[in-house]
Design a protein around this nucleic acid. Structure first.
Lengths: 228, 228
DNA sequence: ATAATAAATGTGTTTTTTACATTTACTGTT
DNA sequence: AACAGTAAATGTAAAAAACACATTTATTAT
């Protein structure tokens, strides 16, 4: 019971399930491995946790290295620890899911890192148990989206209501009524209408909105009900 | 990046936050440590994960050893990995919360293990970051109870509606209207009324109910909305 | 027979959710 | 300048769910 044995020490890894949203589709960031093991295979981005850092430090480090981003929405998903999960090492991995805003800067960093955005409906075979991690993460964000306003994390600073709707449609995998959606979102009193319009997808243009960060924060903390 | 260094290996522990429900109160199972380090201090029950087992195997093993129970509702809470969390070892702990039914059998095993049930409102100082784990777990079950029928895990096979209500009152820390509570619970169509009554808390007696396990399972999987 | 106790029950009101179709603002074309 | 095309924006009535609230009932102990 109290027998601390050197043999019972583990490598601890983190793997990051990075989601983005673009062109009405929820996307996953997949990396082409540059090094062995599994060189040239597809995988999530990950790393071993160093002895002098916490798991969340390690996740932040990896996210920074691979996308250049800091201060990202990232949460622990779960631990993957099957004895045979990694044929090379006895290694547990603590998966983290992150929601990021795709923009030009990200696109460049992503390219440098030999990474690709995949539509979540067509995720390729990834190494080890990474496909399982992805499907668990998708389930988790679907659950969380029902009571926390996480959807917003994936949108740019300025966004339109139809964009927000299409994001929720992507998360819930079903289509929503635009009148009811708009009504509900506005009832949260957390987005502010701007004068500008986005005309990229219609001639009429849709008004851009931004968050009221203070109210958004409160909603984030308190939780709420966003069953749609 | 790909430098696997022996020095970056960790002890991996699990700690179990075990909740029960008795006499209208939500309780936490706290153990008196029999061995060093921290001999005679209070703590959650835990153990190092062995190299040949998964984290969930380890949790099950510990729960079995400490309570005699198997097939318990147990879920991963989160990983605790601060560099300075344990002064003795560089050790991460993957906390698990469990919901169990308190009964005579448990009570004996618990006594043998020098464990005590503490009302969640008066939890003593525990070792390391265990108090943090407990408060995180309490928050988690409160969240989960809103969309999964976990409350039932804590009740005996046969239970009354007032008992179920007092459990939800303990989880949500507020009192509920008995008419509305009963109506909502029955609307889920997941409990079956028995002929027997429980007369331990009133002269009239309250009818006992049991779960419809099939429907209960479906509800558990699908999630639902249990905001009260 | 009576008192005491908690269990069981019903209804009207308010709030939220749902279903559903038309008009509007703007652009590009003729 | 008129027109066609496109997605955005809007309102309302009906149904369902949530809420607030008081009385009656079954049983035991005296």
């Amino acid at each position: 019971m109290n027998s601390y044995q050197e043999k019972d020490k583990f490598y601890v890894a983190v793997d990051c399930i990075i989601f983005g949203f673009e062109e009405g589709k929820l996307k996953l960031l997949v990396f082409n491995r540059k090094l062995n093991p599994f060189k040239d295979s597809l995988s999530l981005i990950g790393s071993f946790v160093k002895i002098g850092e916490s798991v969340s430090d390690a996740s932040k480090r990896i996210l920074k290295e691979s996308t250049g981003l800091q201060n990202v929405y990232m949460k622990e998903l779960k631990t993957y620890s099957s004895v045979d999960r990694d044929p090379g090492f006895r290694c547990i991995s603590i998966a983290q899911y992150a929601l990021i805003r795709i923009n030009k800067y990200i696109k460049n960093t992503v390219k440098e890192n030999q990474a690709t955005w995949f539509d979540i409906d067509i995720i390729p075979k990834l190494i080890l148990d990474h496909n399982l991690m992805v499907s668990n993460a998708l389930k988790r964000i679907e659950e969380i989206a029902r009571y926390k306003p996480i959807g917003f994390e994936l949108l740019p600073e300025k966004f339109t209501i139809p964009q927000l709707q299409s994001l929720y449609e992507a998360i819930y995998r079903k289509s929503l009524d635009p009148r009811n959606f708009r009504k509900k979102i506005l009832s949260f009193d957390v987005i502010i209408k701007l004068e500008e319009k986005d005309k990229s997808s219609s001639k009429k243009g849709a008004y851009l909105y931004k968050f009221d960060h203070t109210k958004y924060q409160k909603l984030q903390e308190s939780g709420y009900n966003f069953e749609i």
